[in-house]
Design a protein around this nucleic acid. Sequence first.
DNA 1: TTGTAGGCGTTATCAC
DNA 2: GTGATAACGCCTACAA
Lengths: 347, 347
Amino acid sequence: MSNRKTRRIGIRDVARLAGVAPTTVSRALTLPSIVSEETRLKIAEAIASTGYIPNRVAANLSSNQTKTIGAVIPTLRNSIAADFTEGMAEVLRRAGFQLLLGSSEFSPEEEEAIVVEFIARRVDGIYLTGSMHTARTRELLRSNRIPTVEIATLPDDPIDMASGFSNFEAGYRMTRMLAEEGYRRVALLTTFTRDNERQSERLAGYRVAVAEFGLDPDPRLFAEVEMSLKSGGEALAHLLDVRPDIDAIFCTGDIVAAGVLFECQRRGIDVPRQIAIAGFEGLDISENVVPPLTTVRIPRKQIGMKAAEMLLDRIAGKPPSQPKMDLGFEIVRRASTIRMAGAAEDP
Amino acid sequence: MSNRKTRRIGIRDVARLAGVAPTTVSRALTLPSIVSEETRLKIAEAIASTGYIPNRVAANLSSNQTKTIGAVIPTLRNSIAADFTEGMAEVLRRAGFQLLLGSSEFSPEEEEAIVVEFIARRVDGIYLTGSMHTARTRELLRSNRIPTVEIATLPDDPIDMASGFSNFEAGYRMTRMLAEEGYRRVALLTTFTRDNERQSERLAGYRVAVAEFGLDPDPRLFAEVEMSLKSGGEALAHLLDVRPDIDAIFCTGDIVAAGVLFECQRRGIDVPRQIAIAGFEGLDISENVVPPLTTVRIPRKQIGMKAAEMLLDRIAGKPPSQPKMDLGFEIVRRASTIRMAGAAEDP
DNA sequence: TTGTAGGCGTTATCAC
DNA sequence: GTGATAACGCCTACAA
């Protein structure tokens, strides 16, 4: 069996050296309190002198748990997934869990393949971004009773649990705020909405507000772009071609919003005087650019931490107090959308 | 012996259903070519009808390999680690490997703890950021003969392999370029250099160039800051307090450089006329801000991909052609450091 | 508090 | 091309 070259030190070697049974060594490692001071010491010594590192693969097989969470994220590039994951990893690490990471590149089929692989590796829990999954992914997770948390979203029918906020509400509220501020021709830039309910719900919220507050409903005011600075700039150029009279742009991603702002700087367009800009996510960049950008701040790290806690609780057998945790969001008004007092006096 | 509730479908169940031995099922799954068409079909059917998902934990134990790479990165926040990891993950996934992720928060001790955990989980290879590790980390990796790659750096004495570029050279070359452009009082902003040889080597390169080209050696021109937009702005404020006459700032991170630029915009300081700014990394932001930032472009994704390839080769038993892969870097000159033609004519 | 026995689900080995 | 058998290294149950 196996490519054994020089056999590694195993638990029985340590046991022999310490003059105890393997079981005792195992116990000294997992529940030190139930082992006598004396034997604990002998074992510690034996471990130190051999440099023994337990084989978790064997432990996992035997105990039927891996202390591992599998996380599927869309991408690490220009992505707030990094922040969610950071919060997640922090809580997990404290609990002695490890993180297995897979990126789906926004494809539910890729996601499914990763989930299958995670199940094969018997992860104790799974973390998915969003609520767009294949039917088989849902089926697999449910029938295998794998603790699962969906993040950045609050699905009507979660697979198991969710940690997020209402993307619809956030899209609606930001648009309403812009309407109340007096903007009438509010363009919307989302990233691709296909297979991405976070984006499409923000769009839905925008549309409801547009109708409700009598904003310009011209479909040319809406476009889908990549999540990048560059595509924000290009989108602005295009918008100005078809509707040079827009007075505000709402981007459902701060990176795109910043790209729009930079293009305005390049063209000498005054923000917010000529065009107001609003972003989404509450990234550092939104508050550091000039002028700072109005945005929707979402508690990214907390969402990740909460997701981890829910997973850990469920793994420990405690049902979550709420299967859907709404961590909320906050509209942050900054200079990029504030109507100047003197604006009306302009010629 | 496991919390068995309803026993999962196992390889023996599939075997029984297909009327073959477990061994044959295993073979059909790993080396289909050596199984007859006919039995392969029967097995496929049995798998489909049972929804069997192999238990990789058991497979790992038996075969003594996990098809897993453990990656230790400093942080996911404002970090190019995300780009390295992205390239890494792409290659790994194609080869059927999974990624176990741990963040050290820039602490070698944390890194060591994560490495121990990775070894316990019997990862097939390990990926470390940088070359600052504890003695025990090096010892552990070497004595256990674990394929290891250090990234973003080219250590004199790599643990095993490395994929990166010369940080010293890059720091030197950028400073030289600024000197040649005519700047004389060139400030340097690094992030914390303790336990971070990437940063300290860039600093060393800067110092050599400062001496060589007779730039102002005032130590007040150097500061260490956090990798954030905000701290870039704050650092500029401080620099202007102590040395209002600086004519260029070299930041060993584009995020910090952008933070400096935004602060200049806030203060009405003309870039590059009054102060030139150079960054490092070649992030998107460097080419999208106004004016675009001169920077050191490093092939982030390629470094990650190369690291994965080296690891995979070594795991397959092929020694690498070169243990240290230098992927190079490129000085990208942009408007933020270009001396205006008319500058000398100013009053 | 400690030890014994058996099994976790797969793959490697060696026959057939 | 296929099957029987023995590991892989640990943990759980139960006994002492």
